[in-house]
């Protein structure tokens, strides 16, 4: 690829990314009444999206080989346990991450 082709490729990636971010706001501008169905989606989607993001962030885990996803399962349990117990975001996140790092570096 020449430098110009690289610039064009990056520009296209930027444009397409921005399209995915701006499109809903362009189709349903603030001044106009948003269709009821879209409003409904706006209310029920986030909970589903957070579920999707949890799976998305775990998509690289292979349960068939290597450590079979055991360190992930333990660390997830730690995050959930800590969060149910203290409900302090930073403690739950830091605790789970430290446990995971120790597991993959020392145990598995």
């Amino acid at each position: 690829m020449t430098i110009n082709q690289r610039i064009i490729t990056i520009a296209i990636i930027v444009f397409a990314t921005m399209l995915t971010r701006f499109l809903p706001f362009l189709i349903f501008p603030a001044g106009k009444e948003t269709p009821r169905f879209v409003k409904y989606l706006g209310k029920v989607l986030p909970a589903a999206v957070f579920g999707l993001l949890v799976i998305y962030s775990l998509k690289g885990v292979n349960v068939l080989e290597g450590s079979h996803g055991v360190p992930e399962m333990i660390a997830i349990a730690v995050v959930i346990g800590l969060h149910l117990w203290k409900r302090q975001m930073l403690i739950s996140i830091a605790g789970g991450t430290v446990v995971y790092m120790l597991l993959v570096q020392l145990v598995f």
């Binding site: 957070f50 949890v54 998305y56 660390a75 975001m89 739950s92 790092m101």
Partner: peptide, 21 residues
């Protein structure tokens, strides 16, 4: 020496999922 640090993102999404729940 930071192997596994990327789990911080997974942990965050789990916590956010729980908060929403």
């Amino acid at each position: 020496s930071t192997e596994g640090l990327d789990f911080v993102m997974t942990a965050m999404f789990i916590v956010i999922f729980m908060e929403q729940w």
